[in-house]
Amino acid sequence: MCLGIPGEVVEIRPDRPDIATVDVSGVRRAINIGLLDEHPPRPGDWVLIHVGFALSLIDEAEARAALDFLTGIGRAYDDELAALRASSID
């Protein structure tokens, strides 16, 4: 199962403005934010992430609701977090 997971933008890489560090349930990873070039996220913004790409900006309430739902489904979310921990975008 593939999920869109909310993450909070922590920083935008100064040398790569298309890459941001995000926090997803305590896991920090670099993701590509290039698809959001018309409205680029800033630190503190929430994005919906799928396979290493930010697909859209979302507000914090939507992010919290999604995280609550994902936590409730258990294993599928745990599997996605494990895949995120093992991933890397350079």
Rank of each mutant, 00 (worst) to 15 (best):
C2P: 05
C2N: 14
C2A: 13
L3V: 11
L3T: 04
L3A: 05
G4A: 13
I5P: 04
I5N: 00
P6A: 02
P6W: 06
P6C: 05
G7A: 08
G7M: 09
E8F: 00
E8R: 15
V9Q: 02
V10I: 15
V10Q: 12
E11H: 03
E11R: 13
P14F: 05
P14Q: 12
P14C: 01
R16A: 13
P17E: 11
P17D: 10
D18E: 15
D18L: 09
I19V: 15
A20E: 10
A20Y: 04
T21I: 15
T21P: 00
T21W: 11
T21A: 03
V22K: 00
D23I: 04
V24H: 01
S25P: 01
S25W: 08
G26M: 12
V27Q: 08
R28T: 15
I31K: 00
I31Q: 01
I31E: 04
I31V: 15
N32H: 12
I33N: 05
G34Q: 07
G34C: 06
L35H: 11
L35A: 13
L36R: 03
L36H: 05
E38D: 15
H39T: 15
H39M: 13
H39P: 01
H39A: 09
P40C: 02
P40Q: 02
P41T: 03
P41S: 01
P41I: 04
G44K: 06
D45M: 06
D45G: 01
W46C: 04
V47P: 07
L48Q: 11
I49W: 09
I49K: 01
I49G: 01
H50K: 10
V51S: 10
G52T: 06
G52P: 03
G52Q: 07
G52S: 03
F53D: 15
A54K: 07
A54M: 11
L55N: 11
L55A: 11
S56N: 11
S56I: 05
L57I: 15
L57Q: 05
D59M: 07
D59Y: 08
A61L: 11
A61H: 10
A61W: 03
A63R: 07
A63I: 12
A63L: 09
A63C: 06
A65I: 01
A65N: 06
A65M: 05
A66M: 14
L67V: 08
L67F: 00
L67D: 00
D68Q: 07
F69N: 00
L70V: 05
L70R: 03
L70Q: 07
T71I: 09
T71S: 09
G72E: 01
I73H: 05
G74S: 03
G74A: 02
G74L: 08
R75Y: 08
R75L: 14
R75I: 09
R75F: 08
R75E: 15
A76P: 09
D78R: 12
D78H: 08
D78P: 01
D78G: 07
D78V: 14
D79I: 13
E80V: 11
L81H: 05
L81P: 05
A83I: 04
A83V: 04
A83M: 10
L84T: 06
L84Q: 03
R85M: 10
R85F: 04
A86Y: 02
A86L: 15
S87Q: 04
S87P: 03
S87F: 10
S87V: 06
S88Y: 09
S88F: 14
I89A: 03
D90G: 11
D90K: 08
D90H: 10
